[in-house]
Computed example of a mutant assay.
Amino acid sequence: MDSQMEVEFEKSKTGNKDERYEAYQTILKVTDQKVDWAYEVWDQLVEDLTDKDNHQRSRAAQYLASLAKSDPEMRMMKDFPRLWEVTKDEKFVTARHSLQSIWKVGIAGTAQKDMVMEYMVDRFKNGTDEKNYTLIRNDILQNMKHLYNHYNDEAIKQIALELIETVDDKKYQKKYMGIWK
């Protein structure tokens, strides 16, 4: 990793509010493509998933999800349950930002896609006791749409449509269908 990226990761943790946000944006932009330095920050990011600062947990989750495509050793297959836990964070904004980036893990490869889909389907079906579960379901379906757009895999669309059909509330069923128009 070059020294500029090291500075960005440092600023993302310790800078003032504007510096942290700017560094966050830079890191996400850079990790939108494969990078060869993912393992230089990987273990620290996994550790940061349980940081006492919810902003740090959120950033760590989003960075890891974005780095999944740069993970030839497939460490994500082992670390994913820890990442997924942040999607259930006590701070809803942290949970939501983490969940909204989880699809990026799925574009790293077929095994990762299958794992992410399995977790999301389970949560869609069994998460109705969660606070704000309708928003969580919306985010899950949006993640599936991102995966569908990436892979052009009709099976993903079929799963999403079948999940939407299980929703009793017609208002939400219609809202969720809007994602797939």
Rank of each mutant, 00 (worst) to 15 (best):
Lys174Ala: 13
Lys145Val: 03
Met120Gln: 11
Gln25Ala: 09
Arg20Trp: 00
Asp169Ala: 08
Glu162Val: 06
Tyr133Asp: 13
Thr94Pro: 01
Glu90Ile: 11
Gly127Gln: 08
Asp51Ala: 14
Trp42Tyr: 07
Gln173Gly: 09
Gln173Asn: 06
Lys11Gly: 00
Asp48Tyr: 01
Arg137Val: 03
His150Asp: 12
Ser70Gly: 00
Ala60Asp: 11
Gly127Lys: 03
Glu162Trp: 07
Ala61Val: 05
Gln173Tyr: 02
Ser58Val: 05
Ile156Thr: 07
Lys78Tyr: 06
Lys157Phe: 07
Leu45Gln: 04
Leu28Thr: 04
Ala38Trp: 04
Val7Ile: 15
Lys78Arg: 10
Thr94Met: 03
His150Gly: 07
Tyr151Arg: 04
Ser3Phe: 12
Glu22Gln: 13
Ala160Phe: 02
His97Tyr: 07
Glu85Leu: 14
Arg96Met: 15
Tyr176Asn: 03
Gln44Asn: 10
Ile136Cys: 03
Asp139Ser: 14
Asp129Asn: 15
Ile107Gln: 07
Ser66Asn: 12
Lys104Gly: 08
Tyr63Asn: 07
Asp129Lys: 12
Trp37Asn: 03
Asn143Gly: 13
Tyr172Gln: 06
Leu161Tyr: 08
Gln4Thr: 08
Glu162Met: 08
Gln25Tyr: 05
Trp180Val: 02
Tyr39Cys: 02
Ala61Lys: 02
Leu49Ala: 03
Asp114Arg: 01
Tyr176Glu: 06
Thr110Gly: 10
Glu162Arg: 04
Trp84Gln: 08
Glu162Tyr: 07
Asp153Glu: 10
Trp180Gly: 02
Lys78Val: 12
Arg96Ser: 15
Asp79Gly: 07
Lys170Trp: 09
Gln56Met: 14
Thr31Pro: 02
Arg59Glu: 12
Arg96Gly: 10
Lys131Ser: 14
Asp89Trp: 01
Lys174His: 09
Asn126Pro: 03
Asn152Leu: 13
Asp53Thr: 05
Met120Trp: 06
Asp79His: 05
Leu28Arg: 08
Gln158Lys: 13
His55Leu: 13
Pro81Met: 09
Asp153Thr: 08
Arg137Thr: 01
Leu163Gln: 14
Gly15Phe: 06
Thr166Gly: 01
Thr14Gly: 12
Lys157Arg: 13
Glu118Pro: 03
Trp42Ile: 04
Thr31Tyr: 07
Glu8Arg: 04
Ile140Ser: 08
Ile159Trp: 02
Gly109Pro: 00
Ile156Pro: 05
Gln56Glu: 14
Lys171Trp: 07
Thr128Glu: 14
Phe80Gly: 02
Ile159Tyr: 02
Phe92Met: 06
Thr31Ala: 11
Asn132Leu: 15
Asp51Pro: 01
Tyr151Gly: 01
Glu22Val: 11
Asp43Ile: 01
Ser101Met: 05
Lys69Gln: 12
Ile164Thr: 02
Glu10Tyr: 07
Lys104Asn: 09
Glu6Val: 09
Lys91Ile: 14
Asp36Gln: 15
Asp51Met: 00
Met177Trp: 10
Asp168Lys: 09
Met115Leu: 13
Trp103Ala: 11
Met117Gln: 14
Met120Pro: 04
Thr128Gln: 11
Ala61Ile: 03
Lys52Met: 11
Val86Leu: 07
Lys13Gly: 09
Leu141Met: 10
Ile102Gln: 01
Thr31Glu: 06
Tyr119Phe: 15
Arg137Phe: 08
Asn54His: 13
Asp114Tyr: 04
